[in-house]
Design a protein around this nucleic acid. Structure first.
Lengths: 249, 249
DNA sequence: TTGTTTTTGATTGATTTTGATTGAAAAATG
DNA sequence: CATTTTTCAATCAAAATCAATCAAAAACAA
């Protein structure tokens, strides 16, 4: 059996069963354990599957539609590392903007000891912010159900009531030429406005966001700092353009 | 059984049963207690579940809801009767303002069949409004922790982006001479602004609110209709001043 | 053919996972 | 509130699995 055929066999079996044991693969592909191991390593490298002790499992993103709760736990350790560093930049007395998103959400516990004023467009953050007794302002405007973010023209107007020492934004795409991008233009304009109202802006981006381009542009790379867990090989080009802080989970 | 499969089994079982005992998990996953314990620790770390003595339970978005729910059950029948009638006043295509509060909250289910646009300063209402797929706008501004309402000067500014066919306000005091009053001036000014931006305004007031006076004035009695479950003996004087609808639970 | 490169499968020592055991901690009981 | 029972976390040795290595087999090139 040729290598590509073996790979197909493995992926097909995984598709059906969600998780599959080494032994099953050895039989299905009629190859040795060593060979299957090599295949699994390769396919994991290609992001086609996830290796686990004893076999392999499909990537969880493909396995099921993620609930909001689950989305929060994808790359949780990375997000927490990013969030922790981001929060460490906040000084006592700062006014900051926290974008809607799961990484900014993780910043909240680290802010609780500081005397900060937080403005946010993320409804999911409100409960936790007020729970930690942080002085909280919410941006007004239309609610986007899927992301539980406040967006649109009213949100932009509402934001202009404030000025920020620092703002912390989530993002979908980070690209050297196309800058920071996000799929929804109405979200993009909110992020852009927050950036313009801030002394400094930091983009919180896990490694999956780099060299991606999505529909709506928020800003050029030069306009904001980047905090990320991305490995060294993809970062040098960005380091030439702006401040980049790398954190490790 | 591979680790991810075991995790899925555990989560699935939990999804169905809400809480699950150690023994059940051991049997369902066909693994030792130690292994299940390790799985539970991991899944709790991942925030997929909550460990409890003797097993595990689903993350309590449900239990938080409950405590809120409990608060709402004081005079629930009365509130629901008031809310149901209030909602019946809303016409297809209306833009309405819903004040923060438990009675306005009860209006939401009755609004779900109509094509309405809702603006609110009540954070507690947002989840349910968007859950019913109602087009929702949130007022921007400072969050008052105790009542989970958006208040203050920014809220007033933010409100002025909108015009309402009808608005529905909660209140603390209803008095023939002193009008509608509420303890917090910053809440009062938000209610007052909503009233001024509305074609019609309805005050939702259970019987305990009548002939009470609190600190900050919202409006004169003449400026809004009243919907209440109050008994006949205290209402005549108000009926001379404005439209009063009496509902019975 | 002959030499070279690539792929494969077996081996081995290292790593990870697992289940049993233990004393400690928490709930249940009287 | 003391006692009993249950559940828990920590530890450890056994089992399973893994990555690394290397030689044989296969594919390839000259």
């Amino acid at each position: 059996m040729l290598t590509p055929e073996r790979h197909q066999t493995i992926l097909k079996l995984l598709q059906d069963k969600k998780t599959v044991k080494m032994k099953e693969l050895v039989e299905a592909a009629n190859a040795s354990e060593s060979t299957i191991r090599r295949d699994l390593s390769y396919l994991e490298e290609q992001r086609k599957l996830r290796r686990v002790h004893g076999g392999a499992s499909i990537k969880s993103a493909a396995s099921e539609e993620l609930s909001l709760q689950e989305k929060k736990t994808v790359h949780l350790a990375e997000k927490q590392a990013i969030a922790k560093y981001a929060a460490s930049l906040v000084r006592d007395g700062d006014s900051i903007f926290l974008d809607a998103g799961s990484t900014t959400y993780e910043m909240i516990p680290y802010l609780s000891q500081k005397n900060v004023l937080v403005v946010t467009n993320g409804l999911s953050l409100l409960e936790t912010l007020t729970g930690y007794d942080i002085e909280t302002y919410v941006v007004g405007g239309r609610i986007k159900r899927k992301t539980r973010a406040v967006i649109g023209a009213h949100a932009v107007e509402s934001l202009k009531h404030y000025r920020f020492d620092k703002s912390f934004l989530g993002i979908n795409g980070v690209h050297p030429k196309e800058g920071f991008t996000t799929p929804d233009p109405e979200e993009a304009v909110v992020k852009k406005t927050a950036l313009q109202l801030s002394g400094e802006t930091f983009i919180l981006a896990d490694s999956s966001k780099f060299n991606e381009i999505t529909f709506a542009k928020v800003a050029d790379i030069r306009e904001a700092g980047i905090i990320s867990d991305a490995p060294d090989d993809i970062l040098p080009i960005f380091k030439e353009l702006t401040e980049v802080k790398v954190v490790t989970p």
